[in-house]
Structures are given as C-alpha cells and as structure tokens.
Design a protein around this nucleic acid. Structure first.
Length: 297
DNA sequence: AAGCTGATCAACCGCCACGTC
DNA sequence: AGACGTGGCGGTTGATCAGCT
C-alpha cells in the first residue's frame, strides 16, 4: 500500500458529508477518468471537491465507476449471492467479486433487505417439511440451484487459505458452476458482460494472443481480481485514448450519465458467451485454477 | 389527507491490514 | 520496532419512499 507522502502535510479541512450532488459526481468522474485516482486523499484536492478521499473512493466504487449494473438483481444473481453467502458469510467484497457490475454495498443492502428474509423463510419451510417427512426441498436456495443446475456434490468452500474461507462448512453447490472452486469474475467493473451475450453471434472468435493464448475450443472464466487494479485497465484505456487508438475494440464514451449503458462498448475477444448465472463454464479440464490464479485479458 | 411503519439504499463510521517512514 | 497514513471492509445509520390504516 503506497503511502501518500504529499498529503501527510496538508492542512486539515472540513469535509462535506451527505449525498453527492450531480456536480460533485461530474467533478469526481471527470477527474478519475482523466487522471485515475492514484492516491485517494489527493483526489478531492485535485478535483476541487470538499470531500475526503474515503468518501470519493466510496462514491466512485459504488456509483460512478464504469461497468456497474443499475438494474435490479436477477434470479441468477440472487441465487449466486445466497450460495456464496452460505459459503463465505458476510464477506460482501468477496461475494461481489463473483457478480459482475455489482458492488459489495449493493449486495449487502440487497441481502439485508430481501435475501436474508428469503433464506430464513426457505429454511423455515424446509424444517417444517422435513419434520413432516416431506422431501420436497425445492424452496431452499441450495435446492433451487440443485434443481436448476443438475448435479450437486458436497464441496468445500474456496481453496483460499484465509481463515474465513477455511472455516466455512460444506454446502450444496452446483459442480457445473463451481468446478473446484468459485471463480472470481475478472473485469467486473469494466466489462458489460451482458453485451457479450448479445454480441456473441458476431463476436470475434480470435483470442488476443497479447493477453492469453488459450484454445478457442475452451470456455473461459472471466476472472475478476480485486488485486487486479482498475488502474491497470484505466491506464490501458487512457493509453488507447492518448494514441487515438480505440478503434473498433473499445469505444469509450465520456460524460455520459448512464454509465452502465454507455461506458463501454467492447467487441469481445472471446467466443463463448456467459451463461445466465454469470459464470462462464470451465469445461476444458486443462486448467486447474487455484484461487490465486487469474486470467488477464 | 395525515400519520405511521417498513423497506430500500446511499453514505458514514470504526476497525484492521499493510506499506512507508 | 513502532508510529503513521492509506485503502479496504463490514456494520450501521439516516433520508427517502411506498404502502397501509
């Protein structure tokens, strides 16, 4: 973690709190788009905002950054959240990594406002039906996955070595989705994954050798890694912008208020589409990815 | 129409891990 | 080694809205 030396000397100033105005949003968006955030504490100073860096960061991550979905959660997303929550607990940031375009805050809110009750209700119904000998457990989240995704095995949580993940109990999880572990969806913030579905028929099947050289016959996980700094992508995009080389690969629209729809239009360089559950199926068996493995695009 | 209640969501707070000095 | 600053995370709060009485 890089320390912001310049800012350790800045005078304390009163920071504005509360809801962000459109003007503040625009200032922050323009600044980050142009320069990247770098050190967050310097962002409000340079962007002319009376906010603290933390607030700017949060606003960017939860609202302004490219690729965020603003629509309601799909059934598949909800089931993914429920499944992952049963594995990981309240690790919202980790759960968010598996849901492209969703933020941890958004997922957390949705859980507390809706999913938690739904799960509780399902559990209650399951306990009732099981006590009465009724074997129909289709109302439980795991069973919903089961019924809709076929084969189920008892699997352990992620292979990650974190204490939290090691401590999780086995849960029903669809093997077809999870393989050996739940993938991290790369580019969650950046790729409008839905567009891949729409554009699949016209997608360029060629795989960019610069970024990977996988067999075209395989499916690919789109891996998101929180360590994969958005800055890296930003730099790439800015570089393209500087060079005027966006071409047909990336069309980047600045200054659009509807970020989710307008930030990117990308011709995917992968031939396979995402399934409805948001995971790309890994079928080759040639890749034995660990939780630390990432495929960089 | 007014008041109440619950749901939703944006934002803040406090803590922690990590890097730097 | 310890202090400090920053970023990240989860928990919580408060404003707003919708539905109900």
């Amino acid at each position: 973690m890089r320390r912001c030396k310049a800012n350790s000397e800045k005078p304390k100033q009163k920071h504005k709190k509360g809801l962000w105005s459109p003007d503040e949003d625009q200032k922050l968006r323009d600044y980050v788009m142009k320069y990247g955030h770098g050190c967050w504490t310097s962002v409000p100073l340079n962007a002319g905002l009376q906010r603290n860096g933390k607030s700017c960061r949060l606003r960017w991550i939860n609202y302004l950054r490219p690729g965020l979905k603003r629509e309601i959660f799909s059934v598949e997303e909800e089931e993914t959240i429920i499944t992952l929550h049963s594995m990981l607990g309240n690790k919202w940031s980790q759960i968010a990594q598996h849901l492209a375009g969703r933020t941890d805050n958004e997922i957390k809110n949705h859980w507390h406002s809706y999913l938690k009750k739904r799960v509780a209700k399902a559990k209650a119904e399951t306990s009732i039906t099981s006590s009465t000998g009724n074997t129909d457990s289709s109302t439980s989240p795991a069973s919903q996955n089961s019924s809709s995704n076929g084969s189920i095995k008892k699997i352990q949580g992620s292979s990650s070595t974190t204490e939290t993940e090691q401590s999780v109990s086995p849960v029903d999880f669809p093997v077809d989705q999870a393989c050996n572990k739940v993938p991290k969806v790369m580019f969650a913030e950046w790729l409008m994954l839905d567009q891949f579905r729409d554009q699949n028929s016209s997608a360029n099947p060629a795989v960019d050798n610069k970024h990977n050289n996988f067999d075209n016959d395989n499916y690919y996980y789109y891996y998101y890694n929180s360590d994969f700094q958005e800055d890296l992508m930003m730099q790439e995009i800015f570089l393209h912008q500087e060079l005027g080389n966006l071409g047909s690969e990336v069309v980047y629209n600045q200054g659009q208020s509807n970020i989710g729809e307008n930030m990117f239009k990308m011709n995917p360089k992968f031939e396979e589409q995402l399934p409805e559950n948001g995971f790309v199926e890994l079928i080759s068996g040639q890749f034995n990815l660990t939780s630390d493995d990432h495929i960089y695009l």
